[in-house]
Design a protein around this nucleic acid. Structure first.
Lengths: 103, 103
DNA sequence: GAGCATGTTCGAGAAAAGTCGAACTATGGC
DNA sequence: GCCATAGTTCGACTTTTCTCGAACATGCTC
């Protein structure tokens, strides 16, 4: 298995919490929580790409996201099902009402 | 209200997650999750009292715990109800099954 | 009061995280 | 091949945490 996208069971709870305990990353997770794939470059607030890449790596290594390459861009998605199975209710408890359907 | 024990609505989600994203503090929360008050000095793994005091302060300022003095010792309890109201399911998702229901 | 216990605060060192420019890699179009 | 685009990695810097000894504060008992 790709060591960069570990199984949730391999990741310490504290690592998952740590990944979520940052405003930028939590915002990214919030944007992803609507479902589907998002082009990596537009996630979160405006910031240098090195910084964004860093935050996405933290989320990825915490097992929270999955990435797929398509041409020159990468698409990120929330591993909602796996997270939900390992930590039921966590995302719901932490995300500010992702009810906000489409915009 | 005691600024040291803020209302959970005053605390950013990320601060709560940050407080939980440390092995020592998460262990303390786990020990508290059984309910009731615990003498402050025996919580978590063995460590210098300055360090324990620091971790308990982080938990307190995140709104996760409440402290009551009785004589020379302080008793800590988890603010389970308030946390549950503000972040339903968070503690259950994050604590390693304190109840061990069946099988 | 002195002595003792339990915690907090202060200060400093070490370790870790966040930020971001620059260099590098990978892919696609020409 | 060359060039542009999208991301990653590297390196340096800044900021924040963690840790813990030492000093201080508080409350109890004698």
């Amino acid at each position: 298995m790709n060591p960069d996208e570990p199984a949730l069971t391999e990741v310490p709870v504290t690592a998952v919490l740590f990944a979520l305990a940052d405003p930028v990353r939590l915002q990214i997770v919030g944007e992803l929580s609507g479902g589907g794939e998002h082009p990596c470059g537009h996630l979160g607030p405006d910031m240098p790409k090195a910084t964004r890449s860093h935050h996405l790596k933290v989320l990825r290594e915490a097992g929270l996201t999955s990435t797929r390459r398509e041409g020159t861009t990468k698409f990120v998605r929330l591993r909602a099902q796996e997270v939900g199975e390992r930590f039921p209710g966590l995302l719901d408890a932490v995300l500010p009402v992702p009810a906000e359907p489409a915009r």
